[in-house]
Amino acid sequence: MKRPAAIPFERSRSAAAPAVAAQPTPVPLRDFRLLDVWRAQIVADRDLTGTALRVAIRISHAVNRERGYAFPGHQALAEGLCSRATLQRALRQLEARGHLIIVPGRGRGNANRYFVRVRREAPE
């Protein structure tokens, strides 16, 4: 029995690929005096929740001096502070407000990397 001829797949040229917002490139922190500037930037942001502020402070204390970024696990960040769901909301808020760049870990047991992002201009 003969197979029917395959219908060639035609890619529509009219459908454009959706625009993806450019993610800022994470840069390790080399001048640790900027951590104090970053903490002041966090405190000055009136739109942050109290939990997001506390999570940011915990991240700032976890920044590794050799690597220039923090990599605590969710359990360590949330311990005694909030639930994991609240922690994830706080992290999303810090990233959306431009205070953090989060690079996801690769699989279970590999923590995310958190790069602090010091603004050069005045906050909005």
Rank of each mutant, 00 (worst) to 15 (best):
86 T>D: 02
71 F>R: 10
1 M>S: 11
72 P>I: 04
4 P>I: 14
90 A>P: 06
82 C>F: 03
39 R>N: 15
16 A>L: 15
73 G>H: 05
110 N>C: 02
112 N>L: 07
65 R>Y: 09
81 L>T: 08
103 V>P: 03
86 T>V: 08
69 Y>N: 05
74 H>R: 15
25 T>W: 09
73 G>K: 02
76 A>Y: 00
87 L>R: 03
63 V>N: 06
44 A>Q: 08
8 P>W: 09
100 L>Y: 00
70 A>D: 02
73 G>A: 05
19 A>N: 03
60 S>D: 05
67 R>L: 14
61 H>G: 12
43 V>W: 08
97 R>S: 13
10 E>F: 10
5 A>T: 13
50 G>N: 14
51 T>S: 03
115 F>A: 00
108 R>T: 11
99 H>M: 02
113 R>S: 01
102 I>H: 01
98 G>Y: 09
104 P>F: 08
95 E>R: 12
95 E>H: 05
100 L>F: 00
88 Q>C: 01
98 G>L: 06
46 R>A: 07
114 Y>S: 07
21 A>T: 15
23 Q>N: 05
107 G>E: 01
15 A>E: 09
14 S>K: 06
7 I>K: 14
78 A>D: 13
2 K>T: 05
19 A>I: 12
49 T>F: 01
77 L>G: 06
10 E>V: 10
107 G>Q: 01
64 N>G: 04
111 A>F: 08
17 A>P: 04
113 R>P: 05
13 R>F: 11
50 G>H: 11
97 R>M: 05
92 R>K: 02
38 W>R: 03
81 L>A: 12
